[in-house]
């Protein structure tokens, strides 16, 4: 029972990281209608920036996280402006291939700058661990931090899109880009802001991910990126609460699957569950079926 609780909490923690990454995927998809496959690699860059800031500059963790967010935000805006904006009216496939190209570009740039030797990521938030059941159940401070960060981000994003003018404009653009323009909303700027937010979240996710799994190398972002994309699809791509639920469920399924069924098949189980969900709910758990205009 205690071990189940431990797995569950670890699952929620990993799921929280997936959820934060998935939010970036889902927001960009919802507003720009594109799959930004470079998103996973922005996570990796964020983690490297935080790493360098802590290791080489000796900055405290919080400053390093902020630096990573700043760099990733700028990078998100630049990637969008240089790689995706010129393709705004191009076929979707061209944008998708460009995104894959950006992904490789980031990975190889990281390889060039930081080499392929894995770096050991330092702990960002070590105030000891929380223990229960006579020390049998141990929850690290990173786990708690990850879950709390996830909740805070969720509340902040919901408030932002529900209450602020820019947030509402984002929802308007995601529903109908042309109609949003007719309201006077600058679509390019709105998409830019979306990329900025998504990339800042990716930086946070990168730091949280590397705090839990402290090996950092240029490919670190790929697998979590793909899983978070899966989580976004699972929850219903384009939906913010969907990304949250999808991420959490994916994390829990992965950890429980690895613990109770098979360590090797953990990832396979995750994707099997995705396929089953999509068979019954093709738009994902919270996704709305697309209304084709007839």
């Amino acid at each position: 029972m205690v071990s189940f609780l431990r797995f569950l909490i670890n699952g929620i923690s990993l799921g929280s990281v997936y959820a934060i990454i998935a939010l970036g995927y889902t927001m960009v998809y919802g507003i720009a209608k594109m799959l930004n496959f470079a998103h996973g690699d922005v996570i990796m860059v964020g983690a490297y920036i935080a790493y360098c800031s802590m290791q080489y500059l000796g900055m405290p963790a919080i400053v390093s996280v902020l630096a990573a967010m700043l760099v990733c935000t700028a990078m998100g805006i630049i990637i969008e402006g240089l790689a995706y904006r010129p393709l705004r009216s191009a076929p979707k496939l061209a944008v998708l291939i460009t995104a894959i190209g950006v992904s490789y570009f980031l990975q190889n740039s990281a390889l060039l700058i930081w080499s392929s030797n894995p770096k050991v990521f330092p702990s960002v938030f070590d105030v000891g661990a929380f223990r229960a059941f006579g020390g049998e159940l141990m929850i690290t401070s990173e786990t708690i931090l990850t879950i709390v960060a996830n909740i805070v981000i969720m509340i902040a994003l919901t408030t932002f899109t529900g209450k602020t003018k820019v947030g509402k404009a984002m929802r308007a653009v995601s529903e109908d880009r042309g109609a949003a323009q007719l309201m006077g909303i600058n679509v390019n700027r709105t998409i830019s802001i979306t990329f900025a937010i998504g990339s800042a979240l990716a930086a946070i996710a990168g730091v949280l991910l590397c705090s839990a799994y402290p090996t950092l190398q240029p490919t670190t972002g790929s697998m979590p990126g793909i899983k978070a994309f899966t989580a976004a699809v699972f929850g219903g791509i384009g939906s913010i609460p969907g990304a949250m639920i999808g991420g959490l469920m994916l994390g829990v399924i992965e950890i429980l699957g690895k613990a109770y069924i098979s360590t090797e098949l953990g990832d396979a189980i995750v994707f099997a569950v995705l396929i089953i969900v999509l068979l019954f709910k093709p738009a994902g758990l919270l996704g709305k079926p697309v209304n084709e205009k007839v």
Partner: peptide, 24 residues
């Protein structure tokens, strides 16, 4: 001039098929 800037000049359009924001 882009569509969003034209609105600022005082031209508004109510498009065909209404195109209100259905989820808002």
């Amino acid at each position: 001039v882009s569509a969003d800037k034209i609105v600022y000049r005082g031209l508004a359009m109510c498009p065909e098929g209404r195109r209100i924001f259905l989820n808002m």
